[in-house]
Amino acid sequence: AEKTGIVNVSSSLNVREGASTSSKVIGSLSGNTKVTIVGEEGAFYKIEYKGSHSYVAKEYIKDIKDE
């Protein structure tokens, strides 16, 4: 089941290729951006990003809701 969340950062949140802080950064999301969460892996959520799937750190996503 998909969930949505809100990016909870003051500046921007790195979007990564994989579920690791050493993964390549492929983009960023600004605070209060709504994201669609399709899964989770460790400390990361797998999200829909620009037509494919990428990862963001869970600690920076708030207001998780089931869609």
Rank of each mutant, 00 (worst) to 15 (best):
residue 61 I to R: 01
residue 35 V to L: 05
residue 27 G to D: 03
residue 9 V to D: 06
residue 44 F to D: 02
residue 50 K to W: 07
residue 55 Y to S: 00
residue 28 S to A: 11
residue 37 I to G: 00
residue 63 D to T: 14
residue 50 K to V: 05
residue 35 V to E: 00
residue 56 V to W: 01
residue 49 Y to T: 01
residue 19 A to Q: 03
residue 35 V to H: 01
residue 30 S to I: 12
residue 22 S to V: 09
residue 28 S to H: 14
residue 34 K to E: 07
residue 16 R to C: 08
residue 7 V to L: 05
residue 57 A to F: 10
residue 34 K to T: 09
residue 59 E to S: 08
residue 38 V to C: 08
residue 27 G to M: 03
residue 42 G to T: 03
residue 9 V to L: 08
residue 14 N to R: 12
residue 52 S to A: 11
residue 19 A to G: 05
residue 50 K to F: 10
residue 23 S to L: 03
residue 14 N to H: 12
residue 31 G to I: 09
residue 45 Y to I: 03
residue 33 T to D: 08
residue 7 V to F: 03
residue 65 K to E: 11
residue 27 G to T: 02
residue 64 I to W: 09
residue 58 K to P: 00
residue 58 K to L: 02
residue 23 S to T: 06
residue 39 G to N: 04
residue 51 G to W: 05
residue 53 H to A: 06
residue 11 S to W: 09
residue 49 Y to R: 00
residue 58 K to C: 03
residue 64 I to K: 06
residue 30 S to V: 12
residue 37 I to E: 00
residue 6 I to Y: 12
residue 21 T to F: 15
residue 60 Y to E: 06
residue 60 Y to A: 08
residue 51 G to D: 07
residue 33 T to I: 08
residue 37 I to F: 00
residue 64 I to V: 13
residue 15 V to E: 01
residue 10 S to D: 11
residue 40 E to R: 04
residue 45 Y to M: 02
residue 33 T to N: 05
residue 33 T to P: 02
residue 57 A to K: 10
residue 33 T to C: 09
residue 10 S to A: 13
residue 7 V to C: 05
residue 37 I to D: 00
residue 27 G to R: 02
residue 21 T to A: 12
residue 46 K to C: 10
residue 3 K to N: 05
residue 57 A to W: 08
residue 25 V to N: 03
residue 2 E to G: 15
residue 57 A to Y: 10
residue 60 Y to D: 08
residue 65 K to N: 11
residue 48 E to H: 09
residue 5 G to Y: 06
residue 67 E to M: 13
residue 63 D to A: 11
residue 57 A to M: 12
residue 67 E to I: 14
residue 5 G to K: 04
residue 57 A to I: 08
residue 33 T to F: 06
residue 65 K to L: 11
residue 60 Y to L: 06
residue 3 K to I: 09
residue 13 L to T: 08
residue 11 S to D: 13
residue 29 L to Y: 02
residue 37 I to K: 00
residue 54 S to G: 15
residue 40 E to A: 07
residue 61 I to Q: 01
residue 3 K to T: 07
residue 5 G to R: 04
residue 53 H to W: 13
residue 41 E to R: 06
residue 31 G to P: 15
residue 21 T to Y: 15
residue 27 G to W: 03
residue 3 K to W: 15
residue 61 I to G: 01
residue 23 S to F: 06
residue 46 K to S: 04
residue 48 E to T: 10
residue 49 Y to M: 02
residue 6 I to C: 11
residue 37 I to S: 00
residue 17 E to G: 06
residue 48 E to P: 04
residue 14 N to D: 15
residue 59 E to H: 09
residue 9 V to Y: 07
residue 42 G to W: 03
residue 64 I to T: 07
residue 23 S to P: 01
residue 28 S to I: 12
residue 34 K to V: 13
residue 56 V to P: 00
residue 24 K to M: 08
residue 59 E to T: 08
residue 1 A to V: 14
residue 23 S to H: 07
residue 14 N to A: 15
residue 55 Y to I: 00
residue 1 A to Y: 15
residue 55 Y to D: 00
residue 26 I to C: 07
residue 6 I to A: 04
residue 4 T to R: 09
residue 35 V to W: 02
residue 34 K to M: 12
residue 7 V to T: 07
residue 6 I to M: 08
residue 6 I to G: 04
residue 64 I to D: 07
residue 11 S to I: 12
residue 64 I to E: 07
residue 40 E to G: 03
residue 60 Y to G: 11
residue 49 Y to G: 00
residue 37 I to A: 00
residue 56 V to Y: 01
residue 8 N to R: 13
residue 3 K to D: 03
residue 3 K to R: 14
residue 63 D to S: 10
residue 50 K to E: 11
residue 44 F to R: 00
residue 67 E to T: 13
residue 10 S to P: 11
residue 36 T to D: 04
residue 2 E to V: 15
residue 53 H to F: 14
residue 21 T to P: 12
residue 20 S to N: 09
residue 31 G to T: 13
residue 40 E to D: 06
residue 17 E to D: 13
residue 24 K to C: 07
residue 66 D to R: 07
residue 52 S to G: 15
residue 65 K to C: 11
residue 43 A to Y: 07
residue 22 S to Q: 11
residue 9 V to C: 15
residue 41 E to Q: 08
residue 36 T to S: 08
residue 53 H to R: 05
residue 29 L to V: 08
residue 24 K to F: 06
residue 56 V to F: 01
residue 52 S to W: 08
residue 37 I to Y: 01
residue 54 S to K: 10
residue 2 E to S: 15
residue 57 A to D: 08
residue 38 V to S: 04
residue 58 K to T: 03
residue 10 S to K: 12
residue 44 F to Q: 01
residue 66 D to K: 09
residue 63 D to L: 15
residue 11 S to L: 10
residue 55 Y to V: 00
residue 25 V to Q: 04
residue 43 A to R: 08
residue 40 E to F: 05
residue 54 S to E: 03
residue 23 S to E: 04
residue 14 N to P: 15
residue 15 V to K: 01
residue 59 E to M: 12
residue 10 S to C: 15
residue 48 E to K: 14
residue 30 S to C: 14
residue 57 A to T: 05
residue 13 L to Y: 04
residue 32 N to H: 10
residue 40 E to Q: 07
residue 60 Y to K: 06
residue 42 G to K: 05
residue 31 G to V: 11
residue 18 G to Q: 12
residue 56 V to N: 00
residue 59 E to V: 11
residue 8 N to L: 09
residue 20 S to T: 10
residue 43 A to L: 11
residue 22 S to G: 09
residue 17 E to F: 07
residue 24 K to Y: 05
residue 27 G to Y: 03
residue 25 V to G: 02
residue 21 T to K: 12
residue 28 S to Q: 14
residue 60 Y to R: 04
residue 34 K to P: 07
residue 14 N to T: 12
residue 51 G to Y: 04
residue 39 G to C: 06
residue 46 K to A: 07
residue 62 K to E: 09
residue 49 Y to W: 10
residue 45 Y to F: 09
residue 48 E to V: 15
residue 30 S to T: 12
residue 60 Y to H: 10
residue 18 G to K: 13
residue 1 A to W: 15
residue 50 K to M: 14
residue 46 K to P: 00
residue 37 I to T: 00
residue 27 G to N: 02
residue 60 Y to F: 13
residue 13 L to V: 15
residue 9 V to P: 08
residue 18 G to D: 08
residue 66 D to Y: 14
residue 26 I to E: 02
residue 25 V to L: 06
residue 35 V to T: 01
residue 67 E to F: 11
residue 63 D to P: 12
residue 45 Y to T: 01
